[in-house]
Design a binder for these strands. Structure first.
Lengths: 185, 185
DNA sequence: TAGAGCATGTAATAGGTTACATGATTAG
DNA sequence: CTAATCATGTAACCTATTACATGCTCTA
């Protein structure tokens, strides 16, 4: 069974209510950006395909001054397909961590270069942690009574746990690199 | 500047010493598997290309009974290109976390389904943590006096930090999901 | 005698981003 | 006046995996 995750990601967004490809992109950026993203190049063909397979319906909303909106809505068949995918156990995640690739070969450059790299990584992650916290506040304020909220907050907490792990690791690694600098003197 | 990470990953492995495409695959599997992997479909064309660009040299070692080995070695130009890439600050990592995608839409399936999913995720990660510990022991034993070892152990510790974060999050999330189950009764 | 390991490589396919094309409205 | 927002979509291009082709040797 071939599973195109992007397809299910789009269907998942549609499960929140009928909307357009443009709206879907917005949702990804607003609420899922720290763990998932999709480009228009994926979204529009997927929507076309969902309609063709009877997993979603399409209706056109005319607008004046702006382009027409193509509204997609999940069908029962679509919702069932989404649910079936959701209960399949997740596979292994082999994220490609560029920082580790660079550090793995750290011996090829100077200690200062490695330190600079890890410091930059720490900055990135600390920035990201702030963004996740902002997302959390936004979700709590905007979707106070949404039945999905508790699930959304679980995903937010995941981001927080992982990012704090990144920060702790950065600190420890910088200490170690600086110790190596002193040893070399 | 277009940066093909796979290319630099291969060059990084070659920085440890001359070897064949087959060896390179082995190295990825043995030491980097928990944060990076490359398939033959990537490795062989990349090696061909490195030779063409003068970043590596190729020599053939004849063998009897087995296919000949094509040994690649980084040139000075290759080593410089690798170092230049290594000091470029890393970009943002947007890993696609399938478990979060599924949980984000958790409201679409039953609480038991979500619990099963997170439990399975926890099992996966706990398995992975064991593998990382095994890799750590292997590295310490095999590469005791290798100047790269301290960098390698830093990458191993990253895996441990992140995996422990996953496990803590799983525990907390399962508690929350079970609380939701009770509230529903 | 079946399967794993050694060792190279290509072709087909899937998955994903970026740039382009179009064009009106609105905010700064 | 410029840039952003709204809104659709395609084409070109990267990136990556999987399956296939070949064929010998060693181990269970």
């Amino acid at each position: 069974m071939k599973e195109n995750k992007s397809k299910y990601a789009v269907m998942g967004i549609l499960s929140m209510g009928p909307m357009s490809g443009y709206d879907i992109k917005k949702r990804f950026e607003k609420s899922l950006s720290y763990f998932w993203s999709e480009s228009y190049g994926q979204i529009y063909p997927i929507l076309k395909n969902l309609a063709k397979q009877g997993l979603a319906t399409r209706s056109i909303k005319k607008q004046t001054g702006k382009p027409d909106r193509h509204i997609y809505a999940l069908t029962d068949k679509g919702r069932k397909a989404l649910q079936e995918w959701m209960i399949q156990p997740v596979g292994r995640l082999i994220g490609r961590h560029e920082i580790l690739l660079k550090l793995f070969f750290g011996h090829q450059v100077s200690l200062e270069d490695n330190i600079r790299q890890v410091e930059h990584f720490r900055e990135l992650q600390s920035q990201k942690l702030k963004e996740i916290k902002a997302t959390e506040e936004m979700l709590k304020a905007y979707y106070k009574d949404n039945p999905n909220l508790r699930y959304w907050l679980m995903t937010v907490r995941y981001g927080q746990y992982v990012n704090r792990a990144f920060l702790r690791w950065s600190k420890e690694t910088l200490t170690e690199l600086r110790r190596m600098e002193q040893e070399a003197e």
